[in-house]
Design a protein around this nucleic acid. Structure first.
Lengths: 214, 214
DNA sequence: AGATGTGAATGAGTTCACAGCT
DNA sequence: AGCTGTGAACTCATTCACATCT
């Protein structure tokens, strides 16, 4: 059983994937599954599944496999998905409102509970269940809404100052959608999510020679 | 000078980051920069910058550093950002329209030129510069719009069939926002972008012990 | 002299192969 | 017998340190 600190993001992301697969299996009525079959069904690696899980304890039954329901429960708990995680969005421009709209609907543990913007014209506007507040009110907004996760959807140049403001206001983790490198404070994990980088990654392959057929 | 195939996504993503940093430097009027200073300014690793760049050729001047303008030009060309990359979105629900709205505005080389949906009620609706078309028209829509990149914003269960449809229609790369594992066809690179996984990654750290202060 | 480009050394992450349970 | 859990082998990625060039 390992400590939270020493878990790599890669492992962590795979746990999320496993949980998703298990949810599908639950719907299909599967009650037990072996690492090998899980791997086959969802294009994963059996030994990696076992290693990832073993990292956190003994989840399986030797000679049998994993109990789908129980494993799902334990992964959900491990990932902190049993508790609610209120989200606050900073920057209610195109991306910010797109995210509010998207995250506000589909997700269980994650729900957008507040949004702030620098622009006085956006302040006061209604967004689903909340009203956009001014950035200056961040501390109050965080306290009142109980927001745990901050989402940065501001221009690159404003990213660092808004991250700092979120930290100061007491947010516990930050997801950064701005295309900027932010200096992370210890204790407030930061995760960059840059759609442009993802697009550029696939675009890289577009120019490639079409004659090859491997 | 290396081949496209043998470049890791990690390296590729860093090239995007470097390019972004260079654009900022250009705006600040900086004409030359050494790997060490670039690293210091943007929290990167100097030796990694050099290795990443050297992977694609000799971009710098020994004893001097890199020419900001030229390096930016060469990275832009390498990443395929000099050409236009029209995007087609499959699934114009919450996420799809959020993405259309977002990508349609800010991005140079990337622009959403078309969108399709399964739901007859959404078909015909106007979305910025285009009208939503039925999924069945994919081949026609791809041909007419010249779309190169397909974006999947459909439910998980529909992801694989729509990826296949995109491939059949002639799209050259796919970005998948659906929380599903897709079987990739050789020649049509696929990149998963799962916002839920990113959220779950930061959520993992929320439960952690607050007494520690390292 | 000074910064790049690069082999060599280190470290991280994945796969293998089998001991150990059930 | 069968599948997990895990050390050992291996592959991939990063960092170091220096020879090379301007």
């Amino acid at each position: 059983m390992q400590d939270r600190e020493e878990t790599s993001p890669l492992t962590l992301n795979r746990l999320s994937v496993y949980l998703r697969c298990l949810r599908t299996l639950q719907q299909d009525g599967v009650r037990r599954i072996a690492s090998q079959e899980l791997a086959d069904r969802y294009l994963l690696s059996a030994s990696q599944i076992r290693k990832d899980l073993a990292h956190f304890g003994e989840f399986g039954i030797r000679g049998v496999g994993y109990d789908v329901d129980e494993l799902a429960r334990r992964l959900s708990s491990l990932l902190g998905l049993d508790d609610d995680h209120p989200i606050l969005i900073v920057g209610m421009g195109n991306l910010g409102s797109a995210l509010a709209h998207y995250l506000g609907f589909n997700h269980g543990a994650f729900r957008v509970v507040a949004g702030v913007d620098r622009d006085p014209e956006k302040v006061g506007r209604q967004m689903g269940s909340f009203t956009i507040r001014p950035v200056a009110d961040l501390p109050t907004v965080v306290r009142e809404s109980g927001a745990e996760i901050g989402v940065l959807a501001v221009p690159a140049a404003a990213a660092q100052e808004n991250y700092d403001a979120l930290v100061a206001a007491g947010v516990k983790a930050v997801l950064n959608f701005a295309p900027a490198r932010i200096k992370e404070r210890p204790g407030v994990p930061l995760k960059d999510v840059d759609l442009r980088i993802q697009l550029e990654e696939v675009a890289f392959f577009l120019g490639r020679d079409e004659t090859e057929t491997d």
